[in-house]
């Protein structure tokens, strides 16, 4: 440690802290869609990772199209592509709810199996359409490079972008669930389906659109990931366990819990990986989560509603 000067240590602290924050925004983005689908609706969507992959491939396709046909628009395509990622994932989610999920609301374990099957099918379709190799989108210039407040501190711009996006999406989800008329209906439906139906809410429509919105958010998350990692047919499935753990650990019905759990998991993991190896850091984090969950099964933040 003697080799480091005080300012070096400060730079390490800032950059390590930033890498923790950037992992936090990744986990949060992944978990937000699931927090709606699993946390609010109680549907186990094992294909959630594949909806992220849809978003990532959408960005890839947009970047290729723009590069070939409208090279002058390269700096701007990303904004449009994110909206595209949301829309495509939304539409696919809508169709999946209509054909599959709506028959299974009363059988959660079967939903798990069916959506796992769905994820296998989607992975194979990705592989047929985009090839088995990992691809990455050509990013606009403003996402490349890094920000250097001092000569020693080096913060990548794409990391900042993911963080900004995660804040924006979280804000949007909070507004949607707790401030909009639609969110009120969603919460009413999940809390008491029969009563919600009795007061004139079309619960089936609510289910379908809510599920689709959750999928759309997963698409946006996938779109953001293309700025930091490449995309392959099975990339989504790598995230699924982490994503579920974030939501469960946070207390499945609490959105604030999801944010808190993403933050604590990300910070724990990035600190631990600094001291241990990458794999062991992850193992210790996951073990701790599971131990805490065994002692406190309802997660960090319990929803105030009795079920």
């Amino acid at each position: 440690m003697d080799a480091y000067s005080l300012s070096d240590l400060w730079s390490i602290l800032v950059m390590q802290g930033f890498s923790g924050l950037s992992l936090f925004s990744v986990l949060l983005l992944m978990a937000l869609g699931l927090a709606i689908i699993f946390g609010q609706m109680g549907v186990i969507n094992m294909a959630h990772g594949e909806f992220m992959t849809i978003g990532a491939y959408t960005i890839y396709s947009f970047s290729k199209l723009t590069e070939t046909y409208f090279p002058t628009l390269m700096p701007y395509y990303f904004i449009v592509a994110i909206l595209g990622a949301f829309l495509i994932a939304f539409v696919v989610g809508y169709l999946v709810e209509y054909t599959l999920i709506r028959h299974l609301y009363k059988r959660p374990l079967d939903t798990l199996l069916a959506t796992w099957g769905l994820s296998l099918i989607m992975q194979q379709l990705f592989r047929s359409a985009f090839g088995a190799r990992e691809v990455s989108a050509t990013l606009p210039d403003w996402l490349m490079g890094s920000w250097k407040p001092t000569p020693d501190i080096d913060i990548p711009l794409n990391g900042i972008f993911v963080m900004v996006m995660s804040i924006l999406v979280t804000g949007a989800v909070v507004l949607f669930l707790f401030r909009s008329n639609w969110g009120l209906k969603v919460r009413a439906t999940t809390q008491n389906r029969v009563m919600a139906g009795a007061v004139g809410i079309n619960t089936k429509k609510i289910d379908r659109v809510t599920f689709a919105i959750g999928c759309g958010i997963a698409g946006v998350a996938g779109a953001c990931f293309t700025t930091i990692a490449s995309t392959g047919p099975t990339s989504g499935s790598l995230y699924i366990v982490d994503t579920f753990l974030v939501v469960v650990f946070g207390g499945s019905a609490s959105l604030f819990g999801t944010v808190a759990s993403a933050f604590s998991i990300a910070q724990a993991q990035s600190v631990l990986t600094f001291f241990l190896t990458n794999a062991m850091g992850k193992v210790v984090t996951l073990m701790t989560i599971i131990t805490i969950l065994m002692m406190r099964p309802e997660g960090l933040f319990r929803s105030k509603v009795r079920r």
Binding site: L104, R107, L113, A114, G117, L118, S119, L120, I121, Q124
Partner: peptide, 11 residues
């Protein structure tokens, strides 16, 4: 594809 279809079909 077949495996996925089995999961869905069996449910």
């Amino acid at each position: 594809l077949f495996m996925g279809a089995m999961f869905i079909g069996v449910v």
